[in-house]
Design a protein around this nucleic acid. Sequence first.
RNA 1: CGGGAAGUAGCGCAGGCCGGUAGCGCAUCUGGUUUGGGACCAGGGGGUCGCAGGUUCGAAUCCUGUCUUCCCGACCA
Length: 492
Amino acid sequence: MSTLTTRANDYSQWYNDLILKGGLADHSSVRGCMVIKPYGYALWENMRNQLDRMFKETGHQNAYFPIFIPKSLFEAEEKNAEGFAKECAIVTHYRLKTDPDNKGKLIVDPAAKLEEELIVRPTSEAIIWNTYKGWIQSYRDLPLLINQWANVVRWEMRTRLFLRTAEFLWQEGHTAHATKEEAIEETVKMLDVYATFLEEYMALPVIKGVKTPNERFAGAEDTYCIEAMMQDGKALQAGTSHFLGQNFAKAFDVKFAAKDNTMEYVWATSWGVSTRLIGALVMAHSDDQGLVLPPRIAPLQVVIVPIFNKDAEARQRIDNKAQTLMSELRAKGISVKYDDDDTSRPGWKFAEYELKGVPVRIALGARDIENNQAEVARRDTKEKASYSLDGLTENMAQLLEDIQQNLYNRALQFREENTRKADSWDEFVEMLDDKGGFIAAHWDGTSETEEKIKEMTKATIRCIPLNNEQEEGKCILTGNPSKERVLFARAY
RNA sequence: CGGGAAGUAGCGCAGGCCGGUAGCGCAUCUGGUUUGGGACCAGGGGGUCGCAGGUUCGAAUCCUGUCUUCCCGACCA
């Protein structure tokens, strides 16, 4: 019987409790690395499968590149290398040997030093563009649309389960195009894919936008992003899509023969989302009773809990009905579990499945069978209602859709309520400290001002929203002229 | 890398100041009664107290060193 920390009491602790007690992941004995447990991994698989489908529908293919990147390749694109240099794990040796001074222990064999160090990939542009050089000769080879599902390592100072771990799972798309326009189009297209996925499957509304130069991916010309709002009013960058220009093509000398027989550098994009999305999901929808998972990606959509009593015949009737119901639901493509485990009681199960965020719970007892009904509880609102057993399957399919929609609406409403305009510095600071959330404010467009605001308030420019309304105004800090508002927030 | 906390049974913790050979709750196992919101009774099992030294007749406890993890900052998806 575990009690969860409440959101109001300690939001961070609540988040940690949910991940650990909800069975999504555990800390491991490796600093900053987590073990993703079956339930968490099932969630990731559902997300991954859907994204993978969407990538393929937009013409991409999967491939796999090495986890190690020779240092000389890694440093080829200077800005990219610089950006990641301070958080890289590096392989320097390839062999251990027994310690002559300490039986049973191993030491790194100094004789097995590598000629050239290998970088454990923090991102794969380098190794991929080094490979693309051999794949691209002509405009006929373009566009090249590749995605990879992989793990990467970033040696972060401070880690948090799912939100920032030293090793994480992600996908990284790496595409090559003949023209700048086409590459930009791809960048935006994939941003849209991400936004669609988050909104339709994760029930999480996002703001699409462009990063300021300060926040741009190392080596990119432009970084597009989707930003989501968590329940504590902080922003979370949920995905990025980069227009890389010709930076990597130049660094790795990837040219193609154009139709007019001239040699040109290839245009590139890269885009990714990671297991961080699971953190976003948890922080956006869950409550003090546990996880709340959107039906479309929940590992388990419906759980049937039988309420038995001493009456063996009644037990048989309940069991039969539950089995029938289960196969009907499965036939409709709904994932369902019948929990007839006799070692724990109904009340325990109710609490457990609430903790796990299962969207719908059906309780079935002798009383229900007699009345030809079932008690249905939805996780999002915790409402309970009696449903007739006739047509229950169809109603459950509809209920799952309703829950999906409700979660989205709720998150959208929350974001709208917590998005404000600030027109002066005092107002800006007050809103930030008082309410948090997104603040739309004028900014003079300089990195210096952005840095200063960050230092003073810890708020960063999350993005310049796409299709942003143009409006004359004055920078909240400097008073210099500005043509549009940008979105500020404190962020994860 | 700075600041804080913690390592004792699977999990959560007490014991430590005042040294005497380890305890509580949950979980687990056995038997039984139960089952509409985290059941109850009875019995049982499980720990070289993070690691290495030292002090002592004797160390979870005192001393020295060391490792690790977590939390808060700076860095980042």
